[in-house]
């Protein structure tokens, strides 16, 4: 790796790690179902950035772009279904609090 590419890799790497940590923190700490989904979104955004940087560093930016577009489409589908499930949970619990979800244990 040349100097410039190494520099890009590490400066973006910092952001990727930050997005990861924020996303995971959000998923683990929140008691709100929608916020948990937002945390997952942030996590996936970090990964998207990682793939773009990986493509740039390895010199396969076209491949990386096609991967990222596919990824974005799929992720939207997953989130749509997830929000549908959250709607269902809210219908029964009248709240979005994860602490109300405790029927399945053991």
């Amino acid at each position: 790796m040349s100097g410039e590419i190494t520099h890009i890799f590490w400066s973006f790497g910092l952001f990727i790690v930050m997005l990861f940590v924020i996303g995971l923190y959000c998923v683990l700490m929140t008691y709100n179902l929608v916020r948990a989904l937002i945390g997952l979104e942030i996590l996936i955004k970090g990964v998207t950035l990682l793939i773009i940087v990986a493509g740039y560093v390895s010199g396969h930016i076209a491949l990386a772009q096609s991967l990222v577009i596919t990824l974005i489409v799929i992720e939207v589908v997953v989130m749509t279904v997830a929000v549908g499930i959250v709607f269902g949970i809210r219908h029964y619990n009248e709240s979005l609090d994860t602490r109300a979800i405790e029927k399945l244990k053991g």
């Binding site: 997952l40 996590l43 990964v47 940087v53 560093v57 390895s58 396969h60 991967l67």
Partner: peptide, 17 residues
């Protein structure tokens, strides 16, 4: 989704290597 994120990170790193 967390598993997917891990898998994609791995894919990204493998793409880089």
């Amino acid at each position: 989704v967390i598993a997917t994120a891990l898998m994609l990170t791995s894919i990204g790193l493998l793409l880089m290597i």
